[in-house]
Nucleic acid binder design. Structure first.
Lengths: 110, 110
DNA sequence: ATCATTTATCGTAATATTGCAATGAAATAA
DNA sequence: TTATTTCATTGCAATATTACGATAAATGAT
């Protein structure tokens, strides 16, 4: 026990949950917001911006990368991360559809 | 260690992360979808619908209730859960704003 | 009152997440 | 070459999550 029973659920349910989990930490929200604001940034900037240790930031970056939400390109000794536009759009649509599946069905005009 | 450093982040970052965490499990997505489809339901229905034990479903329902996303009303020995409309709308707006903060800033037309 | 039904809670085990110091790896600068 | 800088990875400790059996609490039925 202690492990999510993925096989019990649909692919969509698992996908929504997994992407929600990717953004289910304030540090990762902060990272994404910083990436959006500065259009790109590096690990070092984030360590100063957020108060967490370098190893911890790196770990959060990896999770966001594994979820496909960001991508990094190496520039010398630095790494330039930015939002993965296509994945971001896909996430937006997926969540939008999920949230609207409620309001749509209860909207008296439909 | 092992505990999220909430104090390092803004209230908004913590709120988005916390709500994302509330839906960051396929069982809770399945529960919400079932509530939306049937417009209301009870614990027992969900145990049959989803393959998890009654205690586990009850636990997930509590998490959704604590996040404010659903509310339950007692009907005899049963409990009738439904989506909390206002909170759902708030969640939708919060996520919509977050997702659009990227596309807006990168839209060449703005 | 007794029993059945339904949901919540408790206790516990297995696993996952969070955070960081220490160390590695890779490029640049001296 | 020998530092220095920057990021990734490893290993570990603390805490959180997931799941379920057992049990409690509350209502309704007999």
């Amino acid at each position: 026990m202690g492990v999510t029973q993925t096989h019990l659920f649909t692919e969509e349910q698992n996908e929504i949950a997994q992407l929600a989990k990717a953004i289910a930490h304030p540090a990762r929200i902060a990272i994404l917001q910083h990436l959006i604001k500065t259009k790109s940034c590096i690990n070092g900037d984030l360590v100063l911006e957020i108060g967490l240790a370098q190893a911890t930031i790196s770990q959060h970056l990896r999770e966001l990368k594994e979820a496909g939400l960001i991508q990094g390109s190496i520039e010398g000794t630095r790494v330039n991360y930015c939002i993965h536009t296509e994945k971001w759009s896909a996430l937006k649509s997926l969540f939008q559809d999920f949230f609207e599946s409620y309001s749509d069905c209860c909207d008296p005009n439909c």
